[in-house]
Design a protein around this nucleic acid. Structure first.
Lengths: 186, 186
DNA sequence: CGCGTTATGTAGCAAGCGCTACGAAATTAA
DNA sequence: TTAATTTCGTAGCGCTTGCTACATAACGCG
């Protein structure tokens, strides 16, 4: 009765591991089952169908990512400092699998494919919240807009990193610091 | 002899249409062939394999997109004006299929999957060039960094739009204008 | 014990995938 | 006209996909 939920939990852990390694293209039932130490038959015994299974797994992945990010970058920093910091640590090894998977989910979500659209939306909100929490602003009413801008910019930069455009990323960061330094010198 | 290249061209046009509609998930040989008015057998007669076929098709898609963008936003604008402008028109109807497909290519590229990685890189460079061309800067040496920043930010904003986070996008644009206005008032 | 619910293995289905073997037309070259 | 080459349809291969039918095993409870 209760152990069913527990068993589901254990399975989902294995699925999440595999999903982070292989991504959505490698997320077919048989490989997933193998990674979780069970069979495709059992996956569809514990989950109604592949959608429910993926929803649960991506949910856990989101929880893991948020837990990873929770401890990172303590304190509050202004925009100009936070931008390169976030960009840098999201490009570090532990986050790369998450970022790759994240982009695949986004691509699927852009065609309104269930269940990706909903999940992508939630994760966007979560990440925006996380950004706002770490942001130091002069006026409190600027928090959300500034956090949104930072979020979007980081998103774009991480994306550029994943396709190997590192030079463009550093150029963009230089561009951001340019704007800030000019802001100060005026 | 020469008509073979012409035939390929005609086929690729049909493939591009379908690819923009159905995206990478719908890009299997039989549907593609149907859309191009031929058979899967013939696709693999005119192209070595599916990779070559997709490369050619995505190449044409890139050409089409660049042609679409060529006429848009004539003249040069400063960063603060260009950012919302680009963001707005990339969210308009004619560009949406391109953006969706673009994200799918990026997701595939993030796993270094051939031939997407190379194509994504090229398109990044093309778009960066386009941005730099339309940017008005005070000092010429700021052009590339500023263009890169704008590119990345737009990328992130378009991404947010495709998952329906329009409020976050407008907030971010407000955040950008905030930074600029404060820059002026200081 | 015996019985009902829960768990799991085996086997397979229909559909789709990229791709190919084969032969018949159609076209071109001699 | 004949011979060679290019074009294309038919059919199917081997494999993977999500998912299911069926039977068996294990377990909890009376």
């Amino acid at each position: 009765m209760k152990s069913r939920e527990a068993r589901r939990q254990v399975i989902v852990e294995g699925l999440a591991d595999h999903l982070l390694k292989a991504g959505l293209p490698g997320a077919s039932l048989r490989p997933l089952a193998k990674a979780a130490g069970t069979s495709d038959r059992m996956l569809l015994y514990y989950f109604a169908d592949k959608n429910e299974l993926l929803s649960a797994t991506l949910g856990l992945v989101a929880v893991r990512l948020m837990a990873l990010m929770e401890g990172a970058l303590p304190g509050k920093q202004p925009y100009a400092i936070l931008l390169p910091r976030v960009c840098e640590f999201l490009d570090s090894a532990p986050y790369k699998p998450y970022m790759r998977l994240w982009f695949e989910v986004l691509a699927a979500a852009s065609r309104k494919t269930a269940p990706f659209h909903a999940i992508a939306g939630q994760l966007c909100d979560g990440f925006l919240q996380w950004t706002a929490d770490r942001l130091k602003v002069d006026r409190e009413e600027d928090r959300l807009p500034t956090a949104a801008l930072l979020f979007a910019t980081v998103e774009g930069l991480v994306l550029l990193n994943t396709v190997g455009r590192h030079a463009t990323v550093t150029a963009a960061l230089k561009g951001a610091s340019l704007a800030k330094s000019r802001q100060r010198s005026h």
